[in-house]
Each structure stands twice: as structure tokens, then as C-alpha cells.
Design a protein around this nucleic acid. Structure first.
Lengths: 200, 200
DNA sequence: CCCCCTGCATGACGTTTGTCATCTGCAATG
DNA sequence: CATTGCAGATGACAAACGTCATGCAGGGGG
């Protein structure tokens, strides 16, 4: 019997996944949580074999949850189930020691299979995503990332400069750098591309 | 017995919702589809009582699907289940004659209840969202919307002008109008705000 | 010690944006 | 027919944007 805990912020999806997994005779859903902190408490309390978690959640994200489990050396495997086919996310997830990474685009049956594979000690990583993850590295440095994030919210170079204690010229330099590295032609495209790749 | 068809692009969520509803003894899931066109074909073939659909789907959106059902006067009720708490979306959904509008944030049990209410001839609209929907009207006209959409993808005024067969000055005028109406200070903020409100 | 690399700043440049006031053509309305 | 209204165009202006060459301080590492 595989004991699991579910973390997913959308209540309806959480309930539906729970129903889905409860149909499997070898899986038991011990509990579920709507955010990272609550999930952490459930893990301590219920000691499941596997945590199935989304990435985007209020408070603590799924990735941070995985990191915490890894650092505390808890004997709990982690499977990420997310909408985002972003190579950067998978990379970070693997660094955090997760055993599985599925997309919500994948057929529902894959989840139970992945759960069994992981419980057996194996890994279940979305194959096509795994390829992309190792192909393209994030070309941005910290400053470029920060600046791009703010630019994507509609802030001007001047605003960003104030926020980061830089000169407005420097901000424009970083932005220009980022635009160049990403091979696009303005800050908006740069933001969209970086976001889509999971480089944020 | 309530017969339904499910339209939702994320396979895992689709499967999970199907599992959830199948647990109810008075509900039967006749079929499901991953995009609007497929859903339309399933509706013709299976003649369900109710369609449960997401909004964001490739091809035909859930809103367009509802419109089509309304225009053809099919005896099929529609329940929208979506992530987006955007007043504009609810407004358009109601115009398209849908009977239910739930958020994925709502508890899973609400779905089955809503299904029964709607099947009985009632309406099931997320209450807090219903309030917002009548509070604020979309101030944008068609041109402004089009222009803003493209601007949000990073296109320059010139690009947009070419795409829409307008002069580049005119495009800037519309953009300026939109920025003014929304009370923001540049195209990026305008795009973000309009998107968040569901005005796209 | 010197060299080079990195992080940030500066200034100049041409382009794009955002704002206005004004103008044109066309259709609807009286 | 004249009048009004609307969609789109124009041109001018200041501000912000994107690019580039250059400068400068502070560390390492040779």
C-alpha cells in the first residue's frame, strides 16, 4: 500500500486528484493541503511514502517543499505535478531531489504509474521535458533576471533603478544585455521568453 | 441520472474530474474532450444533459462553445469551470447563456452540487464573482483590445500597424487611449491590467 | 606588482513610445 | 442638403527605450 499526501492549491483539482487516486486499490490518500506550509505540517503528522505536489502554491512552493524535505533527509519521495513545461523548473526540481515530474497534460493514468515507479525507488520524469532541460541553460545572470522581472511588470528603467539602487543607465544596459542574449528585440519579448523557459 | 460531457485541455485534470464525478451515483460521464472542436463533436454524438467545460482550450474556447450551443438552441446546459476569477469572463459567459460558473478554487463537492442544481433548471454562479461582474464594465473598444493584445506580445507599433492595416500613428493613438482609460502609464501595465480583468 | 575580469556608470546616438491638437472621409441623422 | 459623429491619419514634441563605446573601481590570480 502506497501512502501519499497531496498538495495542490486549487481545491477542485485537489479533490479530483484525490478521487482519482482513491480508485487505485494500492494507493491511499492520507491527507491533502492547499498550500506549502500546510503540506509541510501534514507530512510531519502523516509520514506518507510519497508527496504529490503542484509547484505554484501560496506561501511555500512545491520546489521549496522538496528542498526542505531533502535538507531534513525525510524518507519521503516527491512527485511534482504541474502545468508548466518549463525546463528551468525541472532543473530546479531535480536539484531538489525530486523523484518524479509530470505535466498536467499527461494522461491521468500516468500519475498512478509514476507513483508506483517512484515508490519502488525509480524515477518518473516527463521524457520530452527531460531532453529540453539539459539542452538549454539559463543565459541570464542575477541582475538581468531582477531587472527583467520588474520590467515585465511595466516598470520603467528609472523605477527599476530606484528599486535596485542602480543608475538608470545601468538598468538599461542590463536590459539591453538580456534582450541580446535572448535574441529578441525588446523588453516585453525578453520577459515573455524568459518566463516561458522558467528562468523568470 | 445526469448525463454529462467534459471538456478540459489538461489530460490529468480531465481524468481526475471524470473520476470525481463518476463517484456520484446520479451522474454519468458519457465522454470527454481535450479541445473545443472535439467537445462539439462529442456533444452532437452523445447528446448529454450538461456540458462541463474549461474556458482556455486550444481551438474553440469554452465561451465560444457555449455561444455555439446557444445559437443552435441545443438542449444542453453549460457549466464553466475555470481558474480565472475574471469578471469579464463571467459576463461573457452569462451572455452566452451558461447556467453555471465555478472556480477551480471552489471545493470539489460544489461541482456535483452545481451539476444537480443546473440539471434541475437552476443556476450555479460563484457568488463573490457575480458581484464583481456587475461592478466594472470593460472600457475598451474593439480596436483598443486588438492593439493591446498584440502590444502585450511585444510587437512594436509598426508591427501592429502592418498586422491590422492601420497607420503606425493610429496604432499609437489607440494604445494611448487604452493607457488613459485604464489609468496606467504604459502599454505593459495596460496589458496586464486588461488581462487580469478578463477584458483581454 | 600588473593584468584582467566583473559590476556598475556615463554619455551619445537613433528609435520607439506616449500625448496632443488637428485633419480627412464617410456614413447616419435630422 | 447640412450636421454630426466616428474611424482613422498626420505631424510635432518630449520622454523612454535600446545600443554601443568607454571609463572606473575593486578584487583575484599570474
Amino acid at each position: 500500500m502506497i501512502h501519499i499526501v497531496l498538495a495542490e492549491d486549487q481545491a477542485m483539482v485537489r479533490g479530483a486528484l484525490s478521487a482519482l487516486l482513491s480508485l487505485e486499490s494500492d494507493i491511499e490518500v492520507l491527507g491533502s493541503a492547499a498550500d506549502g506550509e500546510a503540506a509541510w505540517r501534514e507530512l510531519q503528522r502523516l509520514k506518507p511514502d510519497v508527496l504529490v505536489t503542484d509547484i505554484e502554491m501560496p506561501g511555500l512552493t512545491g520546489l521549496e517543499l522538496a528542498q526542505r524535505i531533502q535538507r531534513q533527509e525525510l524518507p519521503i519521495k516527491v512527485i511534482i505535478v504541474t502545468t508548466f513545461a518549463r525546463p528551468g523548473f525541472l532543473r530546479r526540481a531535480l536539484d531538489a531531489g525530486v523523484s518524479g515530474y509530470l505535466l498536467k497534460d499527461a494522461p491521468a493514468e500516468h500519475l498512478a504509474e509514476a507513483l508506483r515507479t517512484v515508490h519502488r525507488g525509480g524515477r518518473a520524469i516527463d521524457p520530452q521535458l527531460a531532453l529540453e532541460a539539459w539542452s538549454e541553460a539559463d543565459p541570464l545572470n542575477d541582475r538581468e533576471r531582477q531587472v527583467l522581472r520588474l520590467a515585465g511588470e511595466g516598470q520603467s528603467a528609472g523605477d527599476i533603478a530606484t528599486r535596485l539602487n542602480l543608475s538608470h543607465g545601468t538598468v538599461r544596459n542590463y536590459l539591453s544585455e538580456a534582450i541580446g542574449k535572448l535574441g529578441v528585440s525588446n523588453r516585453i519579448e525578453a520577459y515573455r521568453l524568459a518566463r516561458q523557459k522558467g528562468w523568470l
